[in-house]
């Protein structure tokens, strides 16, 4: 299987008054053609920076000191402005987190969906019928009537379906889903996940699914990358990473999942400490200040220890799977 999207040793720094903020450090992610890869991590782990870097829509003060991003074999960090515009939408497309703000409030759904088809040939009517067909496909009742509706007239779940329909309408090779279910309630979450799965089968695109919700990742993805403070700390097939986590951060993250709780507690579990200052990250392992297994060796950069096949963790203490 060839790679739809390949991120190699990507670093992204932001110039700030306090110095260079190292938002991403040596992150590598590979999404195979037609595969679904999850990225999981708490707020501030660099998920948004990663998305903006993939789209080459980083803020003005961001620099990419090292690394390559290859989309369908083409290095996007070297692509010109024109080529990038072509690639956005056609080859890579995004479903954003908050369906309340990801649609233009003053334009009707139909107008927005027609608008994104500006590259395609065809009459207005043809584009509108394509939009309506896609709205019907994502499970919106009365799709033709909904073309005249404005975003504020739809519920959150409906809007997220519209956003997915818009992203799918472009038939991208890679679809980035940026926490598309976070703003929705649990029943809708399942429906949206199912919808993404179906669309992925139909369009044959690859999905990079970004979330802090472990359950959703486990449900949807083949592989998962665990990120902490701009560093990929563990990667592997979903079952391996969640059942036999190798990195202490992944272990803590799974322990903190409220879905794992078996009895009532007054305080939800959390990881003590807070994210390190990324303008001056600790030497060696990035998780060392919060890790209860840290020893002296952790002050040196941890190796990527292969645990079992494609499953690895960046920790000195990770043990090779016996299973």
């Amino acid at each position: 299987m060839s790679e739809a999207l390949k991120v190699e040793d990507l670093s992204v720094h932001y110039d700030t008054r306090e110095g260079a903020l190292q938002a991403l450090r040596d992150v590598s992610i590979t999404v195979p053609e037609g595969g679904i890869v999850g990225v999981v991590g708490e707020s501030g782990c660099g998920k948004s920076t990663l998305i903006n870097a993939l789209l080459q829509l980083l803020p003005e003060n961001a620099t990419i000191p090292a690394g390559r991003i290859t989309l369908q074999g083409e290095d996007v960090t070297r692509a010109g402005t024109r080529r990038l515009r072509q690639m956005r939408g056609q080859e890579i497309s995004v479903v954003f987190q908050d369906p309340m703000t990801s649609l233009n409030p003053v334009l009707s759904i139909g107008r927005q969906m027609r608008d994104i088809q500006y590259r395609q040939q065809g009459s207005r009517a043809a584009k509108d019928s394509r939009s309506a067909a896609m709205l019907g496909r994502v499970g919106i009742p009365d799709p033709v009537g909904k073309l005249a509706a404005y975003p504020h007239e739809l519920s959150g779940g409906m809007r997220q379906r519209v956003a997915i329909a818009m992203a799918a309408l472009m038939r991208p090779r890679v679809l980035i889903a940026d926490e598309p279910t976070t703003a929705l309630d649990a029943t809708l979450e399942v429906q949206i996940i199912e919808l993404l799965k179906e669309l992925q089968q139909e369009i044959g695109c690859a999905i990079l699914f970004i979330s802090h919700h472990l359950g959703v990742i486990a449900e949807l993805c083949d592989r998962v990358v665990v990120m902490y403070a701009g560093v990929a700390v563990e990667e592997g097939p979903v079952a391996d990473v969640f059942l036999r986590p190798g990195h202490p951060y992944t272990i803590k993250l799974i322990e903190c999942d409220p879905g794992k709780l078996k009895e009532k507690v007054t305080d939800l579990p959390s990881i003590p400490g807070s994210l390190p200052d990324l303008t001056d990250p600790p030497a060696g392992c990035i998780f060392r200040p919060r890790c209860d297994r840290a020893t002296e060796i952790c002050a040196t950069p941890p190796p990527r220890k292969g645990l079992n096949g494609a499953h690895w963790a960046a920790c000195h203490h990770a043990k090779v799977d016996k299973a």
Binding site: L55, L84, Q86, R88, Q90, T101, L107, D115, R119
Partner: peptide, 23 residues
Amino acid sequence: EFILAERAMGASFARIVFHHILP
């Protein structure tokens, strides 16, 4: 976010300004 979404869809400067900001 909808402007970022448009840019992510490959919309040009003029398209964003006249189709999305203007209305």
